[in-house]
Design a protein around this nucleic acid. Sequence first.
DNA 1: CAGTATCCGTTGCGATACTG
DNA 2: CAGTATCGCAACGGATACTG
Lengths: 125, 125
Amino acid sequence: MSTQVERPTGLFSGDAFDSSCPSRSVLDHVTSKWAVLVLVVLSREDHRFSALRRAVDGISEKMLAQTLRTLEGDGFVHREVAATTPPQVSYGLTELGRGVTGHLAGLVGWIEDRIPEVLAARERA
Amino acid sequence: MSTQVERPTGLFSGDAFDSSCPSRSVLDHVTSKWAVLVLVVLSREDHRFSALRRAVDGISEKMLAQTLRTLEGDGFVHREVAATTPPQVSYGLTELGRGVTGHLAGLVGWIEDRIPEVLAARERA
DNA sequence: CAGTATCCGTTGCGATACTG
DNA sequence: CAGTATCGCAACGGATACTG
């Protein structure tokens, strides 16, 4: 029992958050470059593929498709196909998806608020 | 004025969050593979370089150094050198860093809680 | 201890083209 | 519209070696 904890409580080394833990992969999926933006956009309302592509500035079709499949695989995004011609596919958040996205939206909002301070820090650096 | 909003309120396309906006780069830095983990570890207590390396399972020296420099550049992490021999360098969060990390920790905690549900979704997929 | 530098395989990701 | 397939470069990131 050292007073200085060299070995943390157990989340990041040798326990729940070590590199082999599934939490890591979920975290990676959810915080990936595009997933954050896609999730936050979807939290506002369901979107069709093309609308999503336009809403997330700069994303390619390939990355959008890939991101959506990953998110769907983890149960965050729900895909719904309407049997019309031409077929309309719409994406939305699942209950689980709304959960993560709540945290993500908080993060994104915070960053927007504090951008000036970060920019100021960059000046100094 | 369409009832279906094709053009979102303005955060993700043509406004604050478009691809050229600095918010994007801050978001990318903060949500990068290792930054999330480093920040959450630092939120518990200050760490020396080696302790940090041990606490974040799987990180290489290179990526730890690189992550710390980026985070320091954005004003989230504070580096302190003690003039001893051998020199001891310790890293901690700045006020700004504690702000983002609050959101990050919430996200990480949520994921840990809900891992079973995500795993179940993966089974089905 | 606290890093930096170099090498180099792996992956991310955009561009382009094609399908139902 | 809603994707999939293939290519190819650039960045990511690990291993190793070297420095103050």
